[in-house]
Design a binder for these strands. Structure first.
Lengths: 192, 192
DNA sequence: ATTCATACTTGACACTGTCTAGTAGAAAAC
DNA sequence: GTTTTCTACTAGACAGTGTCAAGTATGAAT
């Protein structure tokens, strides 16, 4: 059994990193700042993460696992789709999401367990597209439509979170309704 | 008339920054590195840019101007659309694009001339959506569909450039054809 | 001839990631 | 029951960073 104290430091460091990412973006995550926030020496985090990108990888792993859960969770309404769930996950977990979608921060290829969780989330999306297209769908079409659906969700999420879209669409009264509309447009064009 | 030498340093610094962004991402852009690359002291760039984010703002301004040109340029084929043009711009100008879409790097609100160019590019997109929807389109619908089209282009571009999509879709033979297919799906669902 | 702005250089400061070398304490081996 | 080993740290150093402050060479304006 691992020491309780050490495991709690790992958790504390991770939480601090996610909070910083949510508040100021992943670039603001610093080894020394998370150590300071955890009340330990500047080298303590290195015992739980190989280096700075190790923290990013851990955030990815956790984030993709949570994303999978969100995508599989029961939808709030009958015409709410997976694209919408993706966008809401991003907006509700900005600290994780910003890190997950920056593969310059964490090279998933180097972190098998993080990669595994990312693959799992992607597979859930592929299955959804397959079920929308029906049984006998061509594999090329599945590929194209999967990329398409991910692009809509991902594009909308990143533009709302960090992009200049917010500036241009400041006149939106009901953000949830807006996301719902865009998501519906996307899924409708697949179903056809 | 401004001194030739100084103007050329500004240009040199900007080119170096864009090259670094294309090769290693915007975070790898450092004041001292671009100065080194330009063969000047580490403080020389400060005479042309207020600080590091000033360089990002300059890259944004230039990038959005070039994006507008690309969006308005004659299309290579009759069924090539603006979404496709957007993705191709991103893939052909990764150094600029990566900076343009990270508003944690450059706060457009603080740099009016960069903001102007960004607005202009966005307006071009809005006009395209209006012309796809026809004359009497409701302004709410225009807003939704503009966000939708930008999301597809932006999502596909960022996923291909820096996201994990590349990993999952490694079996794509003809990338241009793939981008064409996804873009067609997007615009087709607007036209309707 | 003097003033003044431009386009730099040099030096310093606080901050960063990370390498190296320790150390307190608990468990295991003998 | 002493010694060894492992875990989870601490402490110090180094090269790198952005940027503030101060100095300098050069050319134009007065």
């Amino acid at each position: 059994m691992a020491s309780t104290k050490s495991e709690s430091l790992r958790r504390t460091v991770l939480d601090a990193a996610v909070a910083i990412s949510a508040a100021s973006g992943p670039d603001a995550i610093s080894m020394r700042e998370v150590a300071r926030e955890a009340g330990v020496s500047h080298q303590a985090p290195y015992h739980h993460f190989t280096d700075r990108s190790g923290i990013f990888a851990a955030i990815c792993e956790e984030g993709f696992r949570q994303l999978s859960e969100s995508l599989l969770a029961p939808r709030p309404s009958i015409d709410s789709n997976m694209c919408e769930a993706y966008v809401h996950f991003a907006l509700q977990n900005p600290g994780h999401f910003r890190v997950m979608m920056r593969n310059d921060l964490c090279q998933l290829a180097d972190y098998p367990s993080a990669r595994f969780e990312a693959d799992r989330a992607f597979d859930i999306l592929v299955e959804e597209v397959k079920s929308l297209l029906g049984e006998g769908a061509d594999s090329e079409v599945v590929k194209t439509q999967t990329a398409y659906m991910w692009s809509v969700g991902h594009g909308l999420a990143t533009l709302l979170l960090d992009g200049p879209l917010e500036l241009k669409l400041e006149g939106i009264d009901d953000m949830n309704a807006f996301i719902h509309q865009v998501s519906r447009t996307a899924v409708a064009s697949i179903r056809k």
